[in-house]
Design a protein around this nucleic acid. Structure first.
Lengths: 140, 140
DNA sequence: TATTGTTATACTCTATAACTATA
DNA sequence: TATAGTTATAGAGTATAACAATA
C-alpha cells in the first residue's frame, strides 16, 4: 500500500491540520489547544481535577500539566485549590474569568476545527469519533 | 460535548499513540517515522522525487526535508541526484542499501502501528482510512 | 520575478530524571 | 515504599525568514 494511504500517516497528517486550524482560530483568545483543553476540564466540574487526573485524561506528562496550569493561573483563568482529602494534591478549578474566556474560546475552537472537518457530514464525523475513541482507549 | 469525545482531541491522541508505537518498533532500524516516510517515497519510483515534491506530499516544510535527506544520505540510504530537467532541483533516490533497510523497517513499522490499531478490524480500518483521507485532502 | 535547495533561528511539543512533601 | 507536584533539561517537531543558484 502506498505511504499516503497508510493509516499512521493519515492520522498524523489529519491531526496536524486540525490542530493548526484550531490554534489559528484560538489565537485571539490567547490560548493554544493544550491550554484550552486543560481550561475546559478545569471548568466542567465544580470541584476541579487534580493535576494527576488531568495528565491521565489528556495523555500528557504531569510536568507538562504543571506548565500549562502555571500559564493559565498567571492569566487568572484557573486556580490551584488544596485537595480536602490529600494534602499533596492540588485541584485545578476554573475562575469566573476562566469560564468566560472558555465560553468565547470554545466557539472559536469549534469553528476552526470544523473548517478542516466540514468535508465530513454529521454521521461521518460520528463514525470517525467512534473509531478513534476505540483506538485511544485500546491498551495497545 | 465532553472534551474527550472531541474529534480534534481524539485525532491528536490517536496520532500520538500510533506514532509512539511506530517509533518504538522502528528503533532497531535507526529510523523514526518521518525519516522512514522519506525513505519509502525515495525508494518507490526509479527516478526519485524532488525535495519540493517530498515536502508537498508529506506535508512537511522544505527545510525539514533537507534535514531528513541529510540524515538518510549520511547513513547511505538515499542519494541526491541532479534533475535532468531542472538544474536547481535534486532528485532523492534510494540506494540499494536504502531499499534493503526499508524492507526491514516496513515490517517493523507495520507491526508497531498495528499494535495500536488492532482493535479495529480490516473493514473498520478501511473506513477510517477513507474518512481521514478526505480530511487530509480537504483544502480547508 | 519566481522557485529550489539551503542555512539559521526560534518556538512548541514530548520525554526523562531527580527532588520535596506528603501518603 | 509509593504517589503528587515540581524543576530542569534535552530531544523532536514545526514555522519563518533570508540567501545563492537557477528558472
Amino acid at each position: 500500500m502506498a505511504l499516503t494511504e497508510d493509516l499512521g500517516f493519515l492520522l498524523s497528517r489529519a491531526s496536524g491540520l486540525v490542530i493548526r486550524a484550531t490554534n489559528a482560530a484560538l489565537i485571539e483568545s490567547g490560548l493554544r489547544v493544550r491550554a484550552y483543553s486543560v481550561l475546559e476540564l478545569a471548568c466542567v466540574p465544580p470541584g476541579g481535577w487534580s493535576q494527576r487526573d488531568l495528565a491521565e485524561v489528556l495523555g500528557l506528562d504531569p510536568s507538562q500539566v504543571v506548565q500549562l496550569v502555571d500559564e493559565l493561573s498567571s492569566a487568572g483563568l484557573v486556580e490551584r485549590l488544596p485537595s480536602p482529602t490529600d494534602r499533596r494534591a492540588k485541584l485545578v478549578a476554573g475562575t469566573p474569568r476562566g469560564r468566560r474566556v472558555l465560553g468565547q474560546a470554545a466557539t472559536l475552537a469549534t469553528a476552526g476545527q470544523q473548517r478542516q472537518l466540514s468535508c465530513l457530514d454529521e454521521e461521518e464525523q460520528a463514525t470517525l469519533r467512534s473509531l478513534l475513541s476505540r483506538v485511544v482507549h485500546f491498551p495497545g
